[in-house]
Amino acid sequence: MIDSINVPPNAFVSKGNWTAEQLKLAFYFYCQTPFGKLHSRNPQIIELAKLIGRTPSALAMKLVNFASLDPSITGTGRKGLSGASALDRETWNEFHADWERLTVECEQLRQHLLQEHGLSAQVPSARADEFPLTDFTGETRQAIIQQRVKQNFFRRAVLSSYRDRCCISGVSDKRLLIASHIVPWSADKANRLNPSNGLCLSAIHDKAFDNHLFTLSDDWQVVLSSRIKSSKDTFLREVFWPSEGKQIEMPERFAPDPSFIAKHRRTMLDSYPID
């Protein structure tokens, strides 16, 4: 289980203004849930509403308020509700200023509520390439759990924004999908968990992107490196060549930050200029 957190006594009131804790958990859920599922009939919304002391309708309304603050939503003509409060906007800005801290804090709040309601507090599930938690104890085990919480949030946020499909190939089998960092995890701590620093890619496209075999233009078109263009490998030609110049499928939310894309592109072009 993740470390516990001190929760104010009136953090989850059922009436009156929403508290900071309720809004944080609502936004945490918003980030990881497809836009089309932000409605009161969604079983996960019903479950979360019960935990935080609000009705499913009230929670669904709050989620759509957050959508009204999301440029990726409003920029495509879709609109959330217009009733976003100053505290809603503050929550939005607080997350964007410190994704890692808020992600861990929200998971601590969620685990606290599960225990308060007599429910099992789940440890985030491991990916196939991770170490089992039973092999570790104490601080090391806690650090691994927190790392999983962070990685799980980023993956869910990115995949749900891209409708669980690779934005280039259209592959939709989650076993083959990666939440790929545009700016590497190790290179930008502040944006490790920022969903706008992610692309949903198939495993092979993720590996190629990470190795700067291709990048994106300012208008989201695929730009192949000279290494791919000069490759004699039949498989690489068949997989990558047809995608050159095609625009990626854009996400419903958290569009890739242009500055992150530009940084990735500069790295590729500096290392492997296009002929």
Rank of each mutant, 00 (worst) to 15 (best):
D3V: 06
S4C: 02
P8R: 08
P9D: 04
F12W: 04
A20W: 12
E21F: 04
Q22A: 11
L23F: 09
F27A: 05
Y30D: 04
P34G: 01
P34R: 12
G36E: 14
L38Y: 02
H39E: 13
H39V: 13
R41K: 13
R41G: 11
N42I: 05
I45T: 10
I46G: 12
A49T: 03
K50Q: 14
L51T: 05
I52L: 07
P56A: 04
A58F: 00
A58D: 08
A60N: 03
M61E: 09
L63I: 03
V64I: 08
F66E: 05
A67M: 13
G75A: 07
G77F: 01
R78N: 09
R78F: 10
G80S: 02
S85Q: 10
W92Q: 04
E94V: 04
F95V: 04
W99V: 08
R101E: 14
L102S: 15
Q111P: 00
Q111L: 15
L113Q: 05
Q115K: 14
H117W: 02
A126S: 10
A128K: 13
E130G: 05
F131C: 06
L133T: 05
L133E: 07
T134E: 15
T140L: 10
R141F: 01
Q142F: 00
I144N: 01
I145N: 05
Q146T: 04
Q147F: 00
Q147N: 12
V149A: 06
S160I: 09
S169P: 06
V171L: 09
L176Y: 08
L177R: 02
H181S: 12
H181W: 10
V183R: 13
N194G: 07
N197I: 07
G198Y: 11
G198E: 06
L199Y: 03
I204P: 00
D206H: 15
A208S: 14
F214R: 09
T215G: 15
S217G: 11
W220Y: 14
W220D: 10
S226T: 14
R227H: 09
S230Y: 07
K232G: 11
F235P: 00
F235Y: 12
V239A: 08
F240M: 11
S243K: 15
E244F: 06
E244L: 13
M250R: 15
F254E: 06
A255Y: 10
S259C: 01
F260D: 00
H264N: 03
M268W: 03
L269K: 09
S271K: 14
P273A: 04
P273V: 10
D275G: 13
